[in-house]
Design a protein around this nucleic acid. Structure first.
Length: 556
DNA sequence: TAAGAGGAGTTAC
DNA sequence: GTAACTCCTCTTA
């Protein structure tokens, strides 16, 4: 969420009324599952970012100023794009005069098959510290989803801001304080929507950078809208967009929109400190609530009564309506509650189900993270390398309750792709949605880069290979359809049926993971067939090429 | 022709 | 010992 603030938009220009209003900016669909598969990179953003929140005027275009930071302190690059509102559809136009300017990969690489788990709207809870710094970061897409209908409101982001601190000083301070990001997200293939591009400029960002932001106009616009039709909507999004305290407090690097477009792999390094801090924040808040409610930090350890206490506390926290029959609706203990799908939460509590489910996911991750770090530190202290037991020995639990466990390796794969195989990289587009959610979910059990305080497990690459099993690897790929949807996807997730869409690529990825350059699909499929005898996988009843099915308990 | 199936030896841990 | 790799032959769609 903090990164969204890097998208600074001049408020004196805005698409006309007939122009599509929404550039939805989805940072993460859901932490554990349900990745929406956008039709292209930009459409992913278009799902959740409401331009109506931003300042506007009746001008024909919006120059959007996105600051792209390089690894070196200077020069920094400003990317200025414009909306050509004469177009029927919204178009983001770019050109790339420098390597530091990134763009999206081609659309045909960005179109995984339709998601098996449709994205569901997420109610907008009142922002709590956790939500402001973590949850909305992790569930940005969900929180924003409720604002769709407001595209015509043209509510000024700043005008109706509940945050009075947003002023020129604030913006300037952020621009100067924030260190640069690495020059990631360099890709050559333009977005499908950039076909008619005409006005992107990449310029060195010097000390006079604030000149790109029309602050006076912005403030005037703010005053103007304060006097006009301000709607009391978008509060959370506005808060998220405006609140820079977290970023400044921790001296975090901003990420430009192009970084998301360019790929998760390239921005992962930038997310990790934020993820770590966000998780710490989540844990602190969870700790406080646990102490208050006298419940375990581990949701799986909750009794039904403790479940009810937590549910009521969470409902109160987010100012959601208290359910009279909560005890009847949720008779499960914590372990059973943790297994409930978001759909089930929503079915039981249409108004607040999503929030409760999302909050529970955060708690689960926070606990998993703390548990892992504790275990890792204990092992480290005793000289034992942390073993990825959660990954290798408890597939049921890890796959169902902590689905992100499998995802870091995949992100590693993406990183490695970007380093070693441009072909694979371009074939594995990533969008921001998967980025945050994956990174967050991954964070719990998988170590990470040197920036991460968590010890890297042997589940990831260690020395010349990896201990990860093939079935785990496949689930890992399947868990990130936005990354790997073109290579492997679920056919029927509930039955564990999946299809390898690109056998060559899957084999290459597997070979990389296992440090087996000669790996091919013939060998990979041979390994899969070995799973038949082991009861790990099987062919589907109606055998189809490249279609396999996980057996229980290797699939939830 | 690519994928599926399976036997059998080898390698890495 | 186990999991996976590798090579192979044969079958199938």
């Amino acid at each position: 969420m903090e990164y969204e603030k890097i998208l600074y938009m001049s408020n004196n220009e805005m698409p006309p009324a007939n122009a599509p209003q929404q550039l939805q900016f989805k940072l993460g669909a859901a932490v554990t599952h349900q990745f929406l598969a956008p039709s292209d990179q930009y459409s992913a953003y278009a799902d959740n970012f409401d331009l109506s929140l931003l300042p506007y005027s009746q001008e024909a275009s919006i120059p959007t100023t996105v600051y792209q930071y390089n690894a070196s302190p200077a020069p920094q690059i400003k990317i200025e794009s414009a909306w050509d509102c004469l177009q029927e559809s919204q178009i983001i136009k770019q050109e790339q005069p420098t390597a530091a300017v990134s763009c999206a990969t081609s659309s045909n690489q960005l179109i995984p098959p339709p998601p098996a788990y449709p994205y569901s709207a997420y109610p907008s809870p009142q922002s709590s510290p956790l939500q402001s710094e973590f949850a909305s970061f992790a569930y940005g897409g969900k929180y924003n989803a409720g604002y769709d209908s407001l595209s015509s409101s043209r509510t000024s982001l700043y005008a109706s801001s509940p945050c009075p601190s947003l002023d020129a000083t604030c913006i300037k301070q952020e621009l100067h304080i924030l260190p640069p990001s690495p020059p990631e997200s360099n890709c050559e293939t333009p977005s499908p929507r950039s076909a008619t591009s005409e006005s992107i400029k990449a310029e060195p960002l010097d000390a006079d950078v604030e000149s790109f932001i029309d602050l006076n106009a912005l403030l005037q616009q703010q005053q103007h809208h304060q006097q006009s039709d301000i709607k009391p909507d978008h509060q959370l999004l506005r808060e998220c967009l405006e609140d820079t305290t977290f970023q400044r407090k921790h001296n975090l690097k901003p990420l430009a929109l192009e970084s998301f477009i360019g790929g998760l792999a390239e921005v992962r390094g930038d997310f990790e400190p934020v993820i770590s801090l966000a998780l710490e924040h989540a844990k602190r808040e969870a700790d406080a609530i646990c102490a208050q409610l006298h419940i375990s930090q581990d949701p799986n350890a909750w009794s039904p009564a403790q479940v009810h206490a937590w549910l009521r506390s969470t409902l109160a926290q987010f100012k959601l309506p208290q359910a009279v029959d909560l005890e009847l609706l949720f008779s499960e203990n914590g372990a059973a509650l943790a297994l409930l799908s978001e759909e089930e939460f929503v079915r039981r509590l249409p108004q607040s189900g999503s929030t409760l489910h999302a909050q529970l996911e955060i708690w689960k991750m926070a606990y998993a993270d703390s548990s892992y770090q504790t275990a890792g530190s204990q092992m480290e202290a005793s000289g034992i390398q942390a073993e990825p037991t959660a990954v290798t020995t408890a597939p049921q639990e890890t796959a169902e309750m902590w689905p992100g466990n499998y995802q870091l390796q995949n992100m590693d794969e993406c990183n490695e792709d970007s380093e070693e195989d441009e072909e694979l990289e371009t074939a594995a587009p990533v969008n921001a949605g998967s980025g945050i959610s994956q990174a967050l979910s991954v964070r719990s059990n998988s170590g990470g880069s040197s920036q991460m305080p968590v010890k890297r497990t042997s589940g990831s690459r260690a020395g010349g290979g990896s201990h990860i099993h093939l079935w785990q690897f496949l689930k890992e790929l399947l868990a990130a359809p936005q990354v790997n949807g073109t290579a492997i996807r679920w056919i029927d997730r509930s039955k564990g049926i999946f299809k390898i869409e690109d056998s060559v690529r899957v084999a290459k990825l597997w070979g990389r993971r296992k440090n087996r350059p000669a790996m091919n699909y013939d060998k990979l499929s041979r390994s899969i067939r070995q799973y038949y005898k082991k009861g790990i996988m099987k062919k589907t009843e109606r055998s189809q090429r490249l279609v396999y099915q996980f057996c229980q308990p290797y699939h939830q």
